[in-house]
Design a protein around this nucleic acid. Structure first.
Lengths: 296, 296
DNA sequence: ACCTTTTTGGAAGGTATTTCCAGGGGGATG
DNA sequence: CATCCCCCTGGAAATACCTTCCAAAAAGGT
């Protein structure tokens, strides 16, 4: 039934863009370029304007999570009204980074990209879905994090945070170790896999293994249609727009961290007494360590 | 053709209300009472729900200044989305996290904290100062990153990024290794030290050593008055408000990453040809690796 | 080069919207 | 008080729009 709501529509269109077929993608691009124009068009007009058949347009609407073009059009009208009202507020320069931009522009654009990524991700993050992930982590016997490259740092970050509230887990950044651990997974284990594309073989393979062994799998990825998302029990989607000088990669990592932070806070809440005590204890330990160091 | 726009729709409906015929007015009332519901309904459903004929509904739309029901419905969707977004914005409490907050609030507050942190940091980030850091990194013979705990991940992140554009450096997260390397530092080396408090002994000590050995020191810290900041040649200040349930720690890490990203993009720009080529080469290597993996 | 799978456009079918028309009620006038 | 006129209203036909189905074309693998 009803797909993405107005707030996150543009972001989620961007998210599924890579997984679309060419002609469907061309329609999706049109939607991204000028949502208001599409909202004003009937399917017949849009078909004429884009050169694609009406059937293809209906497929696009379906791919975006709507029941048909009518629904998409309504959502688009809502979305464009919303963004229009926001446009006035921030007329900051959007756009890509050029090699010749002065540093002030670099700061502005990177900031903008990361800020947008956070907003988009938050808009897409359904509390119910987050709740299920929190439940899974809280009830897990063991939690393992998995990610390679830049995503490895996100996995490590989550592991650090969980450790601070007394839920130790291991962050795997190495296929071989991960596969070994995954093979030994048992029901009650949770694996949190981080991959921007959702297709990184070094992440997907251990996840398959862990799943077969009975573990619950949580995916944090930009691509909700990816192999990783398909394998996972719970999927949390991070947003990030690809741009020329690749602040895309920068932004998507920030998105992933936001998700990790939300999961962390959720888990900390659920286990409040224990978590609060653990935070205090760990902080004290660090403070005492610092004192000793400073005195010496 | 197009009648009242989203902004003044409700007001103008109210204005023409007295001049409408009874059955038309009953439809207009429905619109005022629950615009969102009307936006969701087809003319058939609305007719059934209100008891009025479809023709009457079309007349209502005309009376309100639209060309027909379709247009009215679109405008209604837009209008209700706008008011909804306004409600959401108003309800965005800036406060702290309480252990009892529902997950939706957790998301809102964490998002808000991180978003603010990014904005604050960007505002404090002077382009000239950033420029000096970029210069130092570009001209460095070697770049070493240093950070322990959560800041260690930031250091690792920076190292990863620099490596991708062909400027390998080592991220130290261990006092002993760091001290060893720092003792062997030479003029022309750059040390980037990350510490939220700026007082972490495990970071300050190696920095002292590196300085004595002639290295240029860059500090990324929340506290511009800290020991670390005092020791450094260049200080980049990250922002992050401390709040009760400690999303402060979350936010300050995001700030640090923003700074790293800006430095990275700045360096990449300055070494554009080399950096671009390096990014391409590293990406190709990863792609070829993925292909091999997928095929097997 | 052939076969399978996926993607696409065309046309039929169904639903929603619009237009047209006739019935009905209220008020004014003779 | 009766009659006429005008406007309101609902039903049904006509139209436009959206959706579904099927076959052709293209892509990818063997």
């Amino acid at each position: 039934m009803s797909g993405p709501t107005a707030a996150n529509l543009v972001a989620s269109v961007r998210a599924v863009l890579p997984s679309l077929t060419p002609s469907v993608r061309s329609i999706a691009r049109l939607i991204l370029d000028d949502p208001a124009m599409v909202a004003r068009s009937t399917i017949t007009e849009l078909s004429a304007a884009s050169g694609a058949s009406q059937a293809t347009i209906v497929r696009t609407a379906r791919a975006l999570g709507f029941s048909g073009y009518s629904e998409l059009r309504l959502a688009l009208a809502a979305a464009s009204a919303q963004t229009q009202s926001q446009r006035a507020a921030d007329r900051l320069v959007p756009g890509d980074l050029a090699p010749s931009d002065p540093l002030a522009d670099v700061i502005a654009k990177v900031t903008r990209a990361e800020s947008d990524a956070i907003a988009d991700t938050a808009a897409q993050l359904a509390p119910e879905r987050l709740g299920k992930v929190v439940d899974a982590v809280v009830e897990a016997k063991r939690v393992s994090m998995l990610g390679v490259g830049a995503s490895g740092l996100v996995a490590a970050d989550m592991a650090q945070k969980l450790m601070r509230i007394g839920l130790p887990g291991h962050p795997f950044t190495d296929v071989h170790l991960a596969l070994t651990a995954a093979a030994l997974a048992a029901p009650g284990d949770v694996w949190v896999a981080v991959s921007c594309t959702g297709e990184t073989a070094d992440v997907v393979e251990p996840v398959k293994t862990a799943r077969q062994a009975g573990a619950v799998v949580v995916a944090i990825t930009n691509n909700p249609r990816s192999s990783l998302a398909g394998l996972a029990d719970h999927v949390l989607v991070s947003a990030g727009r690809e741009t020329e000088f690749r602040p895309g990669a920068l932004a998507s990592r920030i998105s992933q961290l936001l998700i990790v932070d939300c999961v962390f806070v959720g888990v900390a809440q659920r286990t409040f007494t224990a978590a609060d005590a653990a935070l205090r204890v760990t902080k004290d330990a660090l403070d005492r360590y610092s004192d000793r160091r400073l005195r010496s």
